[in-house]
Design a protein around this nucleic acid. Structure first.
Lengths: 186, 186
DNA sequence: GGCGGATGTTACGCACGCGAAAGTTCCAGA
DNA sequence: TCTGGAACTTTCGCGTGCGTAACATCCGCC
């Protein structure tokens, strides 16, 4: 199917086909990811909300009251980001802030009646297009995908963990060589 | 092997295992995506740049002068977003705006000497951790992944075109080429 | 030649999204 | 007890990211 390696490629351990494959995979993933986000945002907008606001509503609907930290963790965002989102949702009457009795440092985010009603009204969750597409996959392919993604995420976790400064591992030998004298910043 | 469907699941067309699988896939993808972005951002920061700035530098290094619209398309962002990025890069002396001779509506974005030097110094591209992880995959798995992602992105494109997922109706015009345009790089 | 739509860029307003620092509250240990 | 550090949230500043509107330029068509 694919042409044999040229001598140069063989010497350098490079493979143009491999690079093209990887670029294609990355491009497709970025497409899938950003398209899913775009659709979610569009759906949210039809209800007068933003994407992250829908995510928060659904989290609170599913789990009940959540501390701001818990909500942040479930939304994969930082506390400072979610503080702002909560601010706007309070402003719009979707949630309220309640001080925890157990630990007075904790602020619980709670749905208001209006927030609950809206959450019940909105059928979708984050990444709904993506989920729909996954649902249409053959079970076998879905299992394959799960397995491969597992491998990838383990590998990424390793790469990130190993090199404290996450610069030394994510590149080819050629790039590493070209960089040996390029340290420091203007 | 997964257990047989319970009567309820069969009746409703639901499958708890399937839903869990899909949730897991989505979770893993979000993890991979956001972790990759985080690392890219971290690398950029070590050179005094931001993630999108690095992306822009690398595009300009690879393609030469680009109109703002071309640069936006290659970065998968809107013109208004890239206008802001270009503003800050001009402010920092990385690029300059040049009016096109051929078409006076067009503004070309051009690397300055400082910008070129910096681009040459920075070894990574966007999603570098992800790319490294993909490189460590077996060739067979990489082919499987490519195939499955192709199916998914076709499906997503269909869903979006038709009128969307369960409930969404998202309009899009410039996304159809995201797939067909996956060829060719200098 | 000039008009009207198409194309290219910027301006503006808003909502994330993050890191660093500041302000509370809790808790373990001297 | 009290004191220092840890846990939790908010504030601040900056940089995306997008949609809409405004503005300039180009081009086909009369």
């Amino acid at each position: 199917m694919r042409p044999a390696l040229s001598p140069l490629e063989a010497l350098e351990g490079l493979d143009a086909t491999e690079k093209a494959d990887i670029d294609r995979i990355l491009e497709t993933l970025v497409y899938l990811y950003s398209e899913s986000r775009r659709v979610t945002k569009e759906v949210a907008r039809q209800h007068g909300l933003t994407g992250p606001q829908v995510t928060a509503l659904k989290m609170l609907e599913g789990f009940g009251d959540l501390s701001l930290s818990d909500l942040s963790a479930r939304m994969s965002a930082t506390n400072s980001t979610v503080t702002g989102i909560a601010d706007r949702m309070v402003r719009d009457g979707l949630v309220e802030r309640v001080r925890s009795e157990r630990d007075r440092r904790v602020i619980l985010i709670r749905l208001t009646d209006r927030g609950s009603a809206l959450a019940a009204q909105i059928p979708v969750e984050s990444m709904s297009v993506f989920a729909a597409a996954l649902r249409s996959l053959q079970a076998r392919d879905r299992r394959e995908l799960t397995r491969i993604l597992r491998v990838l995420s383990d590998r990424v976790a390793d790469l990130v963990a190993e090199g404290g400064p996450p610069e030394a591992e994510a590149r080819t030998e050629a790039q590493a060589n070209a960089e040996t004298e390029a340290e420091g910043k203007p």
